[in-house]
Design a protein around this nucleic acid. Structure first.
Lengths: 242, 242
DNA sequence: CAGTGGTCTAGACCACGGT
DNA sequence: CCGTGGTCTAGACCACTGA
């Protein structure tokens, strides 16, 4: 990636992460950054917009760009993030076990909740995630076979997302997610160390490619006491219409 | 608001909501929109960027901007949203009861989790939310008194956010949220109709003003079976740094 | 008042898709 | 090839802040 604004964004973000710019510091002004990087103001503003959106800074007209305290509590595990990335960010070690890896045919109503079209073939993948020697997450993935021809235990055990994005070069654009709490099922009891919990936290997520076609359905079932979902959100009252 | 790009964004968003542009339709090209609205391309691109970010469209280089199916399941209740807005969007009627409205002093460790500074005074507000005649949500709000001098039962019963933003003109910038599942407390049992559930879904949210000062802490405790959190997220691998 | 960010413009060149 | 969106530039004017 040789984008100027992404390069600048990354550099500034790293400076904030590394403490070169500390919380409540002012970033150099847009004019100063223009000169420092020898680019136009618009390019700087693009970089700053991403920093704003990602929760690194807060701008104030007439004042400047303030650095926010990004570590108040463990930061954005938000967005579409793979399990491996998530583990890396939390600095914890997870162990993945592949329990099921098979192909299914989408017909009848059994798989209606996947939002896939009928008569498609899909991979069905069940994986458990172990922390501190307890199975606390059950991930049920369904991926359309037409996008991912080959799949192995090894790929599933490591990072599916890395394989899909780096090897297959598929471009994931967006995801719709839904978080609920459900009574645990026989499956949950079979695969997870649930202690005495009778509910699980469930994250259902529909993943779409850049061509707007659905590509994957994931259901991530967590033992309640180890479940955390963190989010950074900006308020844009003007985006709410009527 | 007389911003051109916001006006255009809202108009396009409404067209999509009202079905003038349907899922999988192509929006007019940027050049066409420029002419139609008699503005520069940058202005159009700002509008389209918001549409993209909010999940209305998906752009494709060389092709155009495709309209996404925004109603696949009830849409973004994401971001910083007040309970009243939320009810409006879900098209349900909620009843709010104000249970506690008092001032507290922040000292010692009792309120450390609020992230407020010591020796501040804050409003403590407990409200329950009733749907279908059952109390299913307990909202515990803590708001710094220095920002909100006066508060009445009526304001709390209607919309706190509306009062704060429209009347007091306080500008809310962003929030950090955290979703967990917790064992229910005596308070939960006292205020909620929990049936036989022994856990609650908890949304903790720290709200900040444009001056980057914390302003409010909210803890929203939901009976598990009625809890849903919906999110639309774009994947930006390039934003994830090292 | 000077300096900051917020909006808007006009024009350039590139990368990509479909013909 | 042309039309699409993606990046970048240079310059203008405004609104807000703080001295």
């Amino acid at each position: 990636m040789s984008n100027k604004y992404l390069t600048i964004y990354k550099e500034l973000a790293n400076h904030i992460k590394n403490g070169k710019y500390k919380p409540n510091d002012l970033l150099p002004s847009e004019t100063e950054l223009m000169k420092a990087y020898n680019v136009s103001r618009d390019t700087i503003r693009k970089s700053l917009n991403i920093l704003t959106q990602e929760g690194y800074i807060q701008k104030a007209q007439g004042k400047g760009s303030f650095v926010l305290d990004i570590n108040r509590f463990s930061f954005p595990v938000s967005g579409v993030v793979s399990f491996k990335e998530l583990g890396k960010r939390l600095g914890k070690d997870f162990d993945t076990d592949v329990k099921i890896l098979e192909c299914i045919e989408i017909k009848g109503n059994k798989y209606a909740h996947l939002n896939f079209n009928k008569n498609e073939t899909a991979w069905k993948i069940y994986r458990t995630r172990k922390i501190d020697n307890e199975n606390i997450i059950l991930d049920k993935d369904f991926i359309l076979k037409k996008y991912v021809k080959d799949l192995t235990y090894d790929i599933c055990k490591n990072s599916l997302y890395e394989y899909i994005e780096n090897k297959l070069k598929l471009k994931i654009a967006y995801a719709k997610k839904q978080i609920t709490v459900e009574k645990c099922t026989e499956e949950d009891k079979m695969y997870l160390d649930l202690k005495d919990y009778d509910t699980v936290a469930v994250v259902k997520s529909y993943t779409y490619l850049e061509d707007t076609n659905i590509f994957q359905y994931t259901e991530s079932r967590h033992r309640p006491d180890r479940f955390v979902f963190v989010d950074f959100a900006r308020r844009n009252p003007f985006f709410d219409i009527s």
